[in-house]
Nucleic acid binder design. Structure first.
Lengths: 216, 216
DNA sequence: ACAGCGCTATATCGCTTCGATATAATGATC
DNA sequence: GATCATTATATCGAAGCGATATAGCGCTGT
């Protein structure tokens, strides 16, 4: 799951571990508590698999034109960026130093990302689903729809199974169960809105209605 | 976290692993996806720590008066207990099934449970909090209040940090972030209701009623 | 009658993730 | 210029997940 998240972020721009964590926590909000104990092993894993490549943050690799090789791609004002480059140049000519490792996604990584996004594992927990949805722009429209509807089906089923037995629970447990059910209901409503939006975007021209006799 | 859940369930009645999983999944709804790969190691762990004791399910353990020796026995003559017996009987008429291990909580286990419930780790993710709340009847009123308010504070802070940057996200990511924020808001409202209920139960006397029923 | 299917039940394996902790450099504050 | 917060990488043990193996038992269909 983390692998997908990391690759998804690297699709946009090169990043180092710390930044990846920040974006996961602040920008996306999902995976808010993700730990460095997960991120660094994940990066090593991905690097070993050839999905990402580590640079020292100063080299501009050939081919990739879409994102800046500078570690802290400055949102506004390139001064800090320049300084960062100079600092990096000064401080990490050798690997022995403890320095920034900026990761860049490879071609194989992009492939893996798409694969993880479409096929990859569970949609059961909210986190993996939300993560997938957050990167849904990388999916084909019909894959997006499939994702949304698959999730919807799961939630509906969960709701159906849940309310069969809310007996023999005390106030607190019951409150938890009830609130969980409410949340799931809200989630379904949310999904319905998304599905409707998808449908509207996909076929803005509605199927010519009820003119079935007259084909030609 | 699982340890607390298991101990909490065993406070009510003796159970075996499979039943524990069922209750976690069906009755509580939280920890819906908990795996046997978690439960059985957890039981072994707890047994090794002396918090639970395993019986073969047919033997009447000496001493323990609070719970009947029969595995699926009612702690009291309560309806829930009877139902549990019937349910269990339906599924296991034979007593000498393959290696059925029925676990019973020990005195040390009860101590550990209270400790985990009050002090134990994170309240950060929804699951651990919900689990704690589900067992809140085992807590002292003021500990309950502390739990609710601690959680509320975390959610409020999360909400405050979240909306600072919803820029530069595409439709899907933005929708995820927005829905997450909405959910957190709903959670806070829920907590407010619970807190109000607690306050009402604790001190029904002195509250000067200003805005009744109005959430904040 | 019995073959096959599905549920109950325990157990283990490898991998991922978590939470805590160590280390170190830089930037800000007083 | 000492101290503190932030940025940054890394590792460790433990906890949890998902898949898989196993086996008894009850029901159903042929």
């Amino acid at each position: 799951m983390l692998d997908m998240a990391i690759l998804g972020l690297l699709e946009d721009r090169d990043l180092h571990g710390y930044e990846i964590r920040r974006q996961l926590r602040d920008n996306l909000g999902i995976l808010a508590n993700v730990s460095f104990g997960s991120i660094y092993p994940a990066l090593t894993r991905l690097e070993k698999a050839g999905a990402v490549a580590a640079t020292d943050g100063s080299s501009s690799a050939p081919g990739a034109g879409q994102s800046a090789p500078v570690p802290e791609a400055p949102p506004t004002g390139s001064l800090s960026g320049e300084l960062a480059v100079l600092r990096a140049r000064r401080h990490s000519p050798s690997r022995a130093r403890r320095g920034k490792k900026v990761y860049r996604i490879t071609e194989a990584g992009r492939l893996l990302f798409t694969q993880l996004l479409t096929e990859g594992g569970s949609i059961d927990d909210a986190r993996s689903f939300s993560l997938r949805l957050a990167f849904a722009r990388h999916l084909a429209p019909q894959a997006r729809m499939a994702l949304l509807e698959r999730r919807r089906a799961i939630l509906v089923q969960r709701l159906a199974e849940a309310d069969s037995s809310n007996v023999e629970l005390d106030v607190y447990a019951r409150s938890v169960v009830q609130h969980t059910a409410d949340s799931v209901t809200q989630d379904i409503i949310w999904l319905d809105r998304l599905i409707a939006a998808e449908r509207a975007a996909a076929g803005p021209v509605p199927v010519p209605v009820t003119q079935e006799g007259d084909i030609r």
